[in-house]
Write a protein that binds this DNA or RNA. Structure first.
Lengths: 146, 146
DNA sequence: CTACTTGCAAAGCCTTTGCAAACTA
DNA sequence: TAGTTTGCAAAGGCTTTGCAAGTAG
């Protein structure tokens, strides 16, 4: 489910099912999202797409990202001023952001997160539907340098 | 530490210690932050301050909030498009936001959160310094209505 | 051919900045 | 009085919107 090819196929299937048109710009963005290791923002995606489509606009990138968000095929990471996008794990999951190298890491497989969700349900009687969980700090690599 | 009066005094002390001037606009904002139960945004604070200072500008509100953030006397809740401010618990803590009534609730005292932080340290070898944790969903009151 | 998509430019939103006037200490 | 702070207006950064031209189906 996380390998590039099947992610691409899944996103494509959702676009088709929705009745959207498979323009070359869209296909290239799906490709990019399913391949890129990091968590790019709209500008970074736009930059990379310009290699293939010198005239592609940022608006097109945003419009396609909105589509994919609606289809649940991309997860938007809300940071203070901008958003980054995760096309590999299109569901809510924690992220760890290094204040030194700015790297954004996935924090899925924090096993004890389930216990937190359960506690929120029980103690606060609150039904969680979505989340934006970001931990800021210093990553292993940057700590080893110091 | 969470009662309005001592919060006000603490914020005031920090402002003084920093050498900042105690203008009436600033004092009114401290007052407001220490009293308000919810988690207001800059515009809401501005609206309320206009009762006392019809000409107060949004810029002044932002500038004072920046000061208080730097002093660690207010916690900024980064939501997608805007920020809200917590003057009662000026340290990072989770928030629960109801998608129905838009209420923002404190999610401090989630006891199992400590275990999550410990797991992040151990499994990811990541040193957490700060966090922005927001859970979106449906609160008790709104669920009872349905 | 028709309806959807693109690219461009303009607009929107929240927040920050520059600067003269006002004010604290 | 000297140095901060205020209010106003303008600018900034990211994202969205309007619309004519282009294109998938």
């Amino acid at each position: 489910m996380t390998d590039p090819h099947s992610r691409y196929e899944t996103m494509l299937a959702h676009l088709k099912a929705r009745g959207g048109r498979l323009t070359s710009q869209r296909l290239a963005l799906l490709q990019l999202l399913s391949v890129s290791e990091g968590h790019p923002n709209a500008a970074q995606l736009h930059d990379q797409l310009q290699a293939q489509f010198p005239a592609i606009s940022l608006a097109t990138v945003y419009k396609t990202l909105t589509l994919l968000k609606e289809e649940g095929e991309v997860f938007e990471i809300d940071l203070g001023s901008e958003s980054h996008y995760d096309g590999h794990k299109p569901y809510p999951h924690p992220h760890l952001i290094c204040r030194q190298c700015q790297k954004i890491m996935d924090g899925d497989d924090i096993r004890r997160m389930d216990a937190v969700l359960q506690e929120i349900r029980e103690r606060y009687d609150f039904q969680v539907l979505q989340s934006q969980l970001v931990f800021y700090g210093v990553c292993r690599d940057c700590r080893q340098e110091a």
